[in-house]
């Protein structure tokens, strides 16, 4: 059989094959031990020594050509087959996704964490104290002795003559002042639950949370307080906000200020959130009263400091647009689940 003719037949057949099975048959027909090309090789023994090399070369070339073509055709068909398979696996991508169940941190935790992290970043520590507190730390040390009119400002839950549920996290500050009187400076934030004899409604809660901050050192000024608070608000609301001080009164600071920030919703232009004023009342603050320092054993001639206190519910309500404080304590999972981390 003419080698050239066989090669052409083989190529034609391979190119015409449509399935892997057909190709396998062709492989057996031409390339197996009993195949046509092997049969040609068998013919070599009948040739002259002069003819042998040339014929061998032709057969080998033929074998190589057929093999390569076959292999490439196999690859081609496999690829086409896989593509066909993949096409069959086409799915509707618009169907609902699988959603792993993600829990939620309570909004008060979120706000507290943010505050803590801002201040930890500035080198503050986080201090805590008992909720069942001594009158001494809640009031007396805070420059609010028995009979002081400011005691009337807060209706307090008393347990006995000396014990109460703390009405302000100022009590933690008073403990920190005493604890750290001999290891100044002090830089702490004091988050915690507090309690007052208020009937619960949309804006009042007998239980709520505060976070106070306290810095005691040499040469601390009101300007330092302002700078610190501006930084805090910028971090919390992720916006540059101006703040303004309004004179106020707290027994444990002198001078005392209410602090307003430019409304985070309208940026100060006036909107329903800020009742058109452009300002949002955010916290109380002031320079620590010398009496408070002296009671804790700190020389008020040498050291000064500032303190501030913010309501966590108020922050959470402002930040997340919560309109009823009771929602924070009802624990409805439909509400809670809105606060993914």
């Amino acid at each position: 059989m003419d080698v050239k003719q066989m090669k052409e037949e083989a190529i034609k057949a391979i190119e015409a094959a449509e399935t892997l099975e057909q190709l396998e048959e062709l492989r057996l027909e031409y390339l197996s031990k009993k195949g046509k090309i092997q049969a040609l090789m068998m013919m070599m023994k009948d040739l002259t020594p002069e003819e042998k090399p040339k014929f061998g070369q032709i057969v080998n070339e033929t074998k190589q050509a057929v093999t390569e073509l076959l292999e490439s055709k196999v690859e081609e068909l496999k690829k086409a087959g896989l593509n066909a398979q993949l096409e069959k696996e086409k799915i509707d991508l618009t169907l609902d996704a699988y959603t792993p169940r993600i829990g939620s941190l309570h909004p008060l935790t979120l706000v507290q964490r943010e505050l803590e992290d801002v201040f930890i970043g500035m080198g503050y520590n986080v201090a805590e104290g008992p909720e069942v507190e001594l009158d001494e730390y809640n009031f007396t040390r805070a420059n609010t002795p028995e009979g002081h009119p400011a005691r009337d400002m807060q209706d307090t839950f008393y347990i006995d003559v000396n014990h109460l549920l703390r009405s302000q996290t100022t009590a933690i500050q008073m403990r920190e002042l005493e604890k750290q009187a001999n290891s100044l400076p002090i830089k702490v934030v004091c988050p915690g639950k507090v309690y007052r004899r208020d009937d619960d409604d949309a804006t009042h809660s007998h239980q709520f949370m505060q976070c106070e901050g306290l810095v005691i050192g040499e040469n601390i000024t009101v300007a330092d307080l302002k700078g610190t608070l501006e930084l805090m608000i910028k971090e919390l609301f992720k916006k540059d906000a101006k703040i303004r001080f309004r004179p106020s009164y707290f027994p444990f600071t002198e001078p005392s200020f209410e602090v307003d920030m430019t409304c985070h919703v309208c940026g100060g232009k006036g909107c329903p959130t800020c009742k058109g004023t452009g300002w949002i009342e955010i916290l109380g603050s002031g320079m620590v009263h010398p009496n408070v320092l002296e009671m804790a054993g700190i020389d008020s001639k040498k050291y000064t400091g500032f303190a501030f206190g913010v309501g966590l519910e108020r922050l959470a309500m402002l930040k997340y647009g919560i309109t009823d404080i009771r929602d924070l304590y009802t624990n409805d999972v439909r509400f809670l689940s809105g606060f993914k981390k």
Binding site: K187, A223, T228, L231
Partner: peptide, 14 residues
């Protein structure tokens, strides 16, 4: 009133 930050020894917050 200007805004400043307290000038004091570094502390580690944790």
């Amino acid at each position: 009133l200007v805004s400043t930050l307290p000038q004091m020894p570094q502390t580690v917050g944790a």
